[in-house]
Simulated assay, not measured.
Amino acid sequence: MMKKVSLQDISQSLNISKGTISLVLNGRGDEKRVSKKTQEKIIKFAQKHNYKANQLARGLSMGKSDMIGLIVPNISDSFYARIARRIERKARLHGYNVVFSSAGESKDRESELIQSMLDRQVDGLIIASSQKNENDIKRLKRNKFPFVLIDRHYPNIKTNYVGVDNIGGISAAVEQLITLGRRRIGFVTLKPGLEAIHERALGYTQTMEKHGLSIEEGFIKELDYENIEVEISNAIKTMVSSPTSIEGIVFATHYLTAAGLRELKKLKIRVPYDVAIISFAQMSAFDLIEPPITSVIQPVDELGDKAVDILLKNLRKEVKDYERFKLKTELVIRKSCGAQ
């Protein structure tokens, strides 16, 4: 087998510095005023010996790695997994590979991952932030490093951002239950912290108030993300028992919906006859179980595509300002809400 020729081999054979050889092989000979004779000499030698540049070394010399970093809270979550697949597919069409990592809603872990990605010379970043990491986001912005925030952002920091219309999505869910005659509607959500969760709560309260429906004590259940399995049991028991007697429940996330459905089944509560159910976001099984679950569908493909499009425009320096998009959701009506 023919020995692979390295940059060092070419340098020793031609008595030309590795830096000059690298510039020529990466098409920057004219830019750096390397003589035509020297350029031809290097190129002919490289072709004769079938020289193939190491991609990482090539990236470092050109200031380009053809890699995009993607940081999400949990890559195993179906929502982020689908976004990651879409981003990877879109990026590959444009010649980029994607490096994935999960930060687990940890500010420190997110900060470490951002630095790790930068150390790996990624060309740009797509981040679903913990929303606790303003310093790193400001640093990326200050250094004019190309990045796009998805799903979550910092309202007071002007950055590229692609998210969904959380308020409109929850509002559509509550409106659907009201249309079907439900008046005592509960809302199961997470404890405040993330912007998306705040917006979904706002969508619920605004729609209830718009229709003159009271939000009684016990109608809203805010659960601890780290203790959902324990807290969901008490929440559902309270909501379906007198004097609360909820007629419908809107769940703020797909995993809250799944946990809530398990508790309703344990209590032998019939969906939708006793309690109607709507989920913000869905899991793949939601259209297969009985009854199928009415869900607010997030435009995952559009979100992933838009994030990559914005990042590519920034990498090509085609934009002077930041871009922000809130994409519309779609309410997919199935039997769980009481619709026939």
Rank of each mutant, 00 (worst) to 15 (best):
Q12E: 13
Q12K: 15
S17V: 08
G19H: 09
S22K: 08
L25S: 02
R28T: 09
Q47L: 13
Q47W: 08
H49I: 05
N50D: 13
M62I: 09
V72A: 10
P73R: 15
D77T: 07
Y80K: 08
A84R: 13
R86I: 09
R86E: 14
E88F: 09
G95D: 08
N97E: 15
V98A: 02
K107Q: 15
S111G: 11
E112G: 06
E112H: 12
M117T: 12
G124Q: 03
L125C: 06
L125S: 05
L125G: 04
S129N: 07
Q131N: 08
N133P: 10
D136P: 03
D136T: 12
F147K: 11
P155M: 02
I157F: 04
V162Y: 00
D165K: 04
S171I: 06
V174G: 03
I178E: 05
G181E: 05
R183M: 02
R184C: 02
G186D: 11
G186N: 09
V188K: 03
V188Y: 06
L194C: 05
E195N: 03
A196L: 11
I197G: 02
E199N: 11
E199A: 04
A201Q: 06
G203K: 00
T207G: 02
E217T: 15
E226A: 12
N227A: 11
E229W: 02
N234L: 08
A235N: 08
I236E: 03
M239P: 06
F251C: 06
T257Y: 09
L261S: 00
E263W: 00
K265M: 09
L267Q: 06
I277R: 06
I277S: 07
E290N: 13
I297V: 12
Q298M: 07
P299I: 06
V300C: 05
D301N: 10
L311A: 12
K313E: 15
V319L: 14
D321E: 14
F325K: 13
L331K: 01
R334N: 04
S336F: 02
